Amino acid sequence: MPSLEWIEPVIRDAQERAPDAVDVPIVVVRVDQQRLYVWERGQVTDIFDVSTSERGIGFEEGTFKTPLGLHRIAERFGEDAPRGTIFRARGDTGQIADILTEPGARSPRDNITSRILWLDGLEPGINQGGNVDSLRRYIYIHGTDEEGRIGEPASEGCVRMRNDDVIELFPRLPVGTVVTILDGPEVPDLS
Rank of each mutant, 00 (worst) to 15 (best):
E40W: 02
V28D: 06
Q33V: 01
D32E: 09
Q43G: 12
Q33Y: 14
T45Q: 10
F48V: 07
T52H: 07
R55M: 03
P25G: 08
Y37N: 04
Q33S: 13
Q33H: 11
R30K: 13
G42P: 13
R35L: 08
I26E: 14
Q33K: 12
F48T: 01
D49Y: 09
R35S: 11
I47R: 06
V29T: 12
R55V: 01
Q34S: 07
R41H: 13
G42Q: 06
I26K: 13
I26V: 15
D46K: 12
Q43Y: 00
V50D: 00
Q33T: 11
Q33E: 15
T52Y: 07
R41Q: 15
Q34L: 07
T52C: 03
R30N: 13
S51C: 04
L36I: 04
I26P: 00
R30D: 11
L36G: 05
V27I: 15
R55E: 02
V38F: 05
Q33G: 04
V24A: 12
V28E: 06
V31C: 05
R41N: 13
T52V: 11
E40L: 05
V28H: 04
G42E: 09
E54D: 05
D32S: 14
F48N: 00
Y37E: 00
V50F: 00
S53A: 13
P25S: 12
R30I: 03
V38Y: 04
G42F: 08
V31G: 05
V50L: 01
V44W: 01
D46I: 03
Q43H: 13
R41K: 15
Y37L: 13
D46L: 11
I26S: 03
V29K: 08
V24L: 11
W39H: 09
V27M: 03
Q34F: 08
S51Y: 00
D32G: 06
D32H: 15
Y37Q: 03
F48H: 14
R55K: 13
G42L: 05
Q34W: 12
D32W: 04
D32K: 04
S53P: 00
R35V: 03
G42D: 06
Q34R: 03
E40A: 14
P25K: 08
R35M: 09
R41T: 14
T45K: 07
V27A: 08
D46S: 14
E54I: 06
D49N: 13
V27Y: 08
W39E: 03
R55L: 12
E40H: 09
V38S: 04
V31H: 08
E40V: 08
G42S: 11
F48R: 15
E40Y: 09
V27K: 08
P25D: 08
I47N: 06
R35K: 15
S51K: 02
V38Q: 10
E54Y: 00
P25E: 07
E40M: 11
S53Y: 01
F48G: 01
I47D: 06
D49Q: 12
T52I: 10
V27P: 02
R30Y: 02
I26H: 13
W39N: 07
T45P: 11
R35F: 02
S51R: 01
E40C: 06
R35Y: 02
E40N: 09
Q34H: 10
T45E: 07
V28Q: 03
V27Q: 07
R35W: 03
R55F: 14
R35N: 05
D32R: 05
L36W: 03
D49R: 11
